[in-house]
Simulated assay, not measured.
Amino acid sequence: MRQIIIRENDAGQRLDKFLAKALPALPKGLMCKFIRTKHIKRNGKRCAVSDRLEPGDVLSFFISDDFFNQNVPRQTPVFLHAPARLDVMYEDAQVLIVNKPAGLVVHTDDRGTGDTLVNRVLHYLYKTGAYDPAAEQSFTPALCNRLDRNTGGLVIGARTAAALREVNELIRSRRLVKQYLCITAAPPPKKQDRVQAYHRKPQAGNLVEIRDTPGGGFANIDTEYRVLAQQKELSLVLVTLHTGRTHQIRAHLAHLGAPLLGDNKYGNVQANRRYGVFTQQLWAWRLIFPALEGVLAPLSGRTISAPDVPFLSTYFPGVELPARSET
């Protein structure tokens, strides 16, 4: 018989989800059979695949040792091949917020890129002693939001399972305010507005569709913008997202006639060539947290801003960005 004691980072998961990570050599069908026949018990009693695990739960296994991968040699974690270099804006025992450079992919892509933001975060946490994969039974620190490769800015990383759940819920409930700075190659229709539209991402390709009326497969999007400064055809725009769809800012502003400078998907090719810019000038600039309790309490009411937005000095040097109270 073997036993596993559920720790804080394992709690809150369904039993089957935990076992899939803790015992990857155990086929799902056989796992369900072992649970049904009481070869796997929770706190000495019959359990179900849908049981939610709690800290201190004891799982007992009356199954072959072969399923525990005891003879699998340890391998160097993949994340150690990525740099541990990060621009950390905020960190506590539960979360860290980093300023991602443009050009860095967030997760491994179709090209198998190893130098990703998530791998840099894992290497950083490993190097600082905050994460030891050998000591974890099922949890790996994770990123809670994502940005396109060529979009820079603030990304939240969860150091614990509890933080991951709470940040994800914060984003899902739209209580976390996310603000972006961008340069548009033409002025938006108004100096300030909050606009609704409908968004669809086709299964084929990586271009989204925007329309002003509902349609099959289209979901509502809600984008608020404010023009902070203008210089000839260029505008510096502050965008507040009220929904978070794929390419929402890029596609929605292009739909309004104000495509992002440098955008190679939705942008103005002539303007991009004229300025010699071929990546979207977009930065996830600021996060505004509501009143919070629990593991996120240290972030309650706080505003985290990226101190350096590279394209500002090029197109709008010396511009004064709005304080939180001005948004």
Rank of each mutant, 00 (worst) to 15 (best):
A229N: 04
R14M: 05
G152D: 13
D51W: 15
V72P: 02
G215Q: 09
Q280I: 09
S60H: 01
A82I: 11
A11V: 05
F316K: 09
Q280P: 09
R2N: 11
A204P: 01
I183C: 13
N9V: 05
I6W: 04
S235E: 00
N119G: 10
A229I: 07
P187F: 05
N150S: 06
Y198H: 15
R85M: 09
F62T: 01
Q94T: 09
F311K: 07
P310S: 02
R175H: 04
A158Q: 10
Y90M: 03
T160V: 09
G157W: 15
L19A: 04
S305R: 04
R200D: 12
N272K: 04
Y126M: 02
K178V: 00
A142I: 12
L23P: 07
P133W: 09
V167D: 01
R273M: 04
A185S: 15
L30E: 14
P259H: 06
K38S: 09
D109M: 15
F139N: 07
V277Q: 12
D109L: 13
P83Y: 07
P317G: 02
G205W: 11
L147W: 09
V309W: 02
P73C: 03
Q137S: 12
L241K: 14
K178R: 15
P187W: 10
R172V: 01
L296M: 13
E169D: 14
Y126S: 06
T128H: 01
N264M: 10
L117C: 10
M89I: 12
E169K: 15
L181N: 08
K21V: 05
L122S: 01
L241V: 06
C47S: 03
I171S: 03
H39W: 07
K45S: 10
R149C: 02
K232F: 11
W283E: 14
R7D: 13
G29Y: 12
A306V: 01
R36D: 06
N99D: 15
T160D: 00
N69M: 08
S138G: 12
D10W: 09
K201H: 10
A291H: 12
S138T: 12
Y131M: 06
A185K: 00
K17E: 10
P322E: 06
L154M: 03
N119W: 08
A102N: 10
A20K: 14
E233H: 02
L241Y: 04
D148F: 09
D115A: 11
F61R: 10
R175F: 02
A11T: 11
V58A: 15
F289E: 01
H247P: 06
D148W: 08
P189D: 14
P259Q: 13
L256K: 07
G114Q: 14
R274A: 15
V155E: 09
T314E: 13
F18Y: 14
I63Y: 08
V49F: 01
V88R: 10
A142N: 14
V98K: 08
I5Y: 03
N119L: 04
I210N: 08
R226C: 14
C182N: 04
P24N: 05
I288G: 03
L241M: 10
Q94C: 06
I63K: 00
A197T: 08
A134N: 01
Q196D: 10
R286F: 00
P188Q: 14
I156Y: 05
Y275D: 13
A271T: 07
V106D: 06
I156M: 09
A82C: 10
H107F: 07
T223G: 02
L238I: 05
Q196G: 12
G153W: 11
M31S: 11
D110F: 13
I40A: 06
Y180K: 03
M89R: 07
M89W: 02
K28R: 15
